[in-house]
């Protein structure tokens, strides 16, 4: 029979943690409130957490900007294509690496892990991407970071820890080769890890800024993150040196920020469950 008493100690801790929760969520609530408020109230700095004079005109403004629309469509294309390719390649490779009888397995693993420690760096990688003719193509957003070593290792750990050996052996006796086992037995059994790693990749591509910065010059190909940076950061920095006509812009900037991160915010309750699962699998030892 345990009864929780509220001691002063628990009280202080609860207040501290409420503070943490508040600091985490406040910026978002504030941006939502400001972006939904009338200009006059924003200019007077009256809006804090509750919108005043509710209006959607900032969102209308943002959504009617063709750059945002193109950015959105591009990002959705890159996320869909990139996640599909990355997930398939990673699952195939991870399965092969999870098999003890795989030829040169140890050597391949060392080769992969070594890339965590050392790499060619920005410029040599750029030159490779360039010489492959990937600059200014959608492939520049998909291929150069197609496989994440971390995700590959998580999946490999998952496969070697959860797929029962007996199942694979009996499938082999029934005449299935490794390809068949992978497609018909391993994949159907691995839906949770596929979902987790798929989401890792999807969020990674959605948020990626360095790939388009390095490899895309054509603004028709820009993903949302680049558009957002150009609309908010570059203009804001320009204003730093310019005049002080920034004030009303604030609500439009917030609307832009929110629009471009909306899918992540909406999916968040669902995402976080899978992400935490991924971290847990990753921390398992083989």
């Amino acid at each position: 029979m345990k009864k929780t008493k509220i001691t002063p100690f628990t009280f202080v801790i609860s207040i501290l943690l409420l503070g943490v929760a508040f600091v985490t969520i406040y910026p978002f609530l504030h941006m939502i409130a400001v972006s939904l408020s009338g200009d006059v109230h924003v200019m007077r700095g009256e809006v804090n957490l509750i919108p005043k004079e509710l209006t959607f005109k900032n969102y209308e403004h943002v959504l009617s900007d063709p750059r945002i629309v193109t950015g959105y469509l591009n990002t959705i294309l890159y996320v869909t294509l990139g996640t599909t390719i990355s997930l398939i390649i990673t699952a195939m490779g991870a399965y092969a690496l999870s098999k003890k009888e795989m030829f040169f397995r140890k050597g391949f693993m060392i080769m992969i892990v070594f890339t965590i420690l050392f790499g060619g760096g920005m410029i040599p990688t750029f030159l490779v991407v360039k010489s492959l003719g990937l600059l200014d193509t959608i492939w520049a957003m998909v291929l150069p970071q197609a496989v994440s070593t971390w995700n590959l290792i998580i999946m490999r750990t998952f496969f070697s820890a959860t797929i029962p050996k007996e199942l694979e052996e009996s499938a082999k006796i029934d005449g299935l080769n490794d390809l068949g086992i992978f497609a018909r037995i391993v994949l159907p059994l691995s839906k949770p890890v596929l979902a987790t790693i798929g989401l890792f990749y999807a969020v990674g591509i959605w948020n990626n800024f360095i790939l388009p910065l390095l490899y895309l010059r054509d603004d028709a190909l820009y993903p949302l993150q680049v558009i957002l940076r150009n609309l908010v950061l570059v203009e804001q920095m320009a204003d730093v040196s310019g005049g002080d006509a920034v004030v009303v812009q604030e609500s439009i900037q917030y609307a832009t920020i929110l629009v471009s991160t909306l899918p992540i915010l909406l999916l968040y309750p669902f995402l976080q469950k899978y992400f935490v699962k991924g971290v847990m699998i990753g921390s398992l030892k083989e």
């Binding site: 985490t24 948020n207 680049v226 957002l228 908010v232 920095m237 832009t256 920020i257």
Partner: peptide, 18 residues
């Protein structure tokens, strides 16, 4: 508390700057 981890660097930087 995990939420900001999923927000892109561009969004976080934009928020900071604004």
């Amino acid at each position: 508390s995990y939420l900001p981890h999923f927000i892109s660097n561009v969004v976080v930087a934009s928020m900071v700057v604004v």
